[in-house]
């Protein structure tokens, strides 16, 4: 049950280093509390099945979930309704979506939605990761759903990069592209780049299938396989290109641009110099 200090090293451009000590401790506390909550919640569900659905108000909320409830009621309730039961034409019910979905949607800034579009886009989060997890705890308490494994931020540690790469190419690259830079989908939708995605976000996305993305449940891709995939994506994110500047790893399109805008332009300028008056 440790805090997340062991985030793998990234280039400083990508994202500021881990949260400061105080915050870290707080996350640690939250994590511990969450874990406790799961144990308690699990026991509770085991002993009293069917209780939750009928008596929302009787759900025993952990302190984190209670905090989350507060946040939910200030920012999410307008679309997702009281007790996250959904509002027709505005937002779906969140009962049973699980904490992983909440952490992904809120943690990447996709929720709260600012405008209706083809799909929710990543933007600067309105809530801290802590708060996102608190809301997640609340939603989880309302109805069981996919959860992220706790604890830790580095979910790819010890993964088999080669195997992960194989799985990535079969399952992920068709939409997110071989360089994990994302790609277009039909009618304005798109698969986002994974360049700035954290391990937990990737894990949560596989688990919950946000937006257009299919669900990759634990039966299809075991937690070990998910770890391998994350290890491969980490490798993509951190391994510098061996052949010089990678041109965004997008493939032949920027290469074609480069040969004209850099190669041809440089050479044609030389021809002007060669044939110019001396």
């Amino acid at each position: 049950m440790t805090a997340p200090p062991e985030r793998r090293k990234r280039s400083p451009l990508r994202r500021p280093a881990g949260p400061p000590g105080k915050l870290r401790r707080r996350i640690g506390t939250t994590a511990r509390l969450l874990a406790a909550l799961i144990v308690v919640g699990g026991l509770y569900t085991a002993f009293s099945p069917g209780m939750q659905a009928t008596a929302d108000d009787e759900v025993v909320l952990s302190p984190a979930a209670a905090e989350g409830k507060q946040l939910f009621e200030t920012s999410c309730i307008s679309c997702h309704g009281r007790n996250a039961q959904g509002v027709p034409d505005r937002g779906p019910s969140l009962i049973g979506v699980g904490s992983a979905a909440v952490e992904f949607q809120v943690g990447t800034g996709r929720m709260p939605l600012t405008s209706q579009g083809a799909q929710a886009e990543r933007k600067t989060p309105q809530f801290t990761l802590d708060q996102a997890r608190q809301i997640g705890a609340y939603i989880q308490a309302l109805g069981d759903g996919p959860e992220l494994p706790l604890p830790g931020e580095d979910l790819g540690k010890g993964g088999d990069v080669a195997h992960g790469g194989e799985l990535f190419r079969v399952n992920c690259s068709s939409c997110h592209a071989f360089g994990a830079g994302g790609g277009a989908l039909s009618s304005g939708k798109s698969a986002p780049t994974l360049e700035e995605s954290t391990d937990r976000e990737i894990y949560a996305a596989m688990l919950t299938g946000p937006s257009s993305m299919p669900v990759f449940g634990d039966n299809q891709l075991t937690p070990d396989e998910k770890r391998d995939i994350i290890a491969y994506i980490q490798n993509l994110q951190t391994d510098p290109d061996p052949g010089g500047w990678g041109l965004g790893r997008v493939g032949p399109v920027p290469e074609g641009l480069a040969i004209f805008l850099i190669g041809m332009v440089a050479i044609v300028f030389t021809t002007l110099w060669i044939a110019g008056k001396s």
Partner: peptide, 14 residues
């Protein structure tokens, strides 16, 4: 069974 988004040929076949 494997494909990547943004599969393109080189510019002269594009």
């Amino acid at each position: 069974a494997v494909v990547s988004a943004g599969s393109q040929p080189d510019w002269y076949v594009m």
